[in-house]
């Protein structure tokens, strides 16, 4: 059982690193899709509670939404914006990889600060969640394309979700689904906005979206 958990966590970490190092947007979307699917497995393997119907339903819904619906939506937005790759981002790909490793170290240090929640099976879950959140934030801050920012937001959401699924096992189902619905709505509206931005500016570089300032 330990093997499966560790390899799942390592896979998740790898997807994060892959995200910040790849420049082609379609590749990034696929990475996030994989991460969504992996995330669906978290409650089954790492989850503290026993395998109730609730946990299984939740993981299936997560896998479907994060693995299929979001990528489909974002690919549609990508095609409409006909953008191929992230042009010159603020932080180069190699340096962002180094930053990724640094963030991993920071996440592990912070993970150790907080005492381990009792039921968790492996000590690496909290650092993993924190690491994914930090990678999400880093992606938003360091990339130009609006689409990458949405991906960053999604990755950050995945990190929080991983933490939620692993520990808050008593969270009522309705709230989990509510959260999922909200994230879905958020991504849906962001997709529409990207479509509008592309129609209005025929580019989706958010750094050029900086007219409103003091």
């Amino acid at each position: 059982m330990e093997l499966w958990i560790d390899c799942l966590i390592v896979l998740l970490i790898l997807t994060n690193l892959k995200l910040i190092s790849s420049s082609r947007l379609s590749a990034c979307i696929r990475v996030v899709a994989i991460q969504g699917v992996l995330l669906g497995l978290v409650p089954l393997l790492v989850g503290s509670g026993d395998l109730t119907f609730r946990v299984i339903l939740l993981s299936i819904v997560t896998m479907v939404v994060k693995g299929i619906v979001f990528p489909w939506l974002l690919l549609k937005a990508l095609r409409s914006a006909n953008v191929r790759r992230e042009m010159e981002p603020f932080v180069g790909y190699t340096t962002s990889l180094l930053v990724g490793v640094g963030l991993l170290a920071l996440a592990i240090w912070m993970g150790r600060q907080l005492p381990l929640p009792a039921p968790s099976k492996s000590p690496l879950v909290v650092p993993l969640a924190l690491f994914t959140i930090m990678i999400g934030l880093f992606a938003i801050v360091s990339r130009r394309k609006a689409l990458t920012q949405v991906l960053g937001y999604l990755v950050m959401e995945n990190g929080i979700y991983a933490f939620g699924l692993a520990f808050a096992h008593q969270e009522p189902l309705l709230v989990e689904l509510g959260t999922l619905l909200d994230v879905f709505m958020a991504v849906f509206i962001m997709g529409i906005t990207i479509f509008q931005i592309n129609r209005e500016f025929d580019h989706i570089d958010t750094d050029r979206l900086s007219l409103l300032k003091d």
Binding site: F90, V141, D207
Partner: peptide
């Protein structure tokens, strides 16, 4: 208030980091 979204989100991340380091 420079107008770029990335900078604004950097503010949030930095405040989060400072608070965590200062209080944990």
């Amino acid at each position: 208030q420079q107008g770029r979204v990335q900078i604004y989100i950097l503010y949030i991340a930095v405040t989060m980091l400072i608070l965590l380091i200062w209080n944990l």
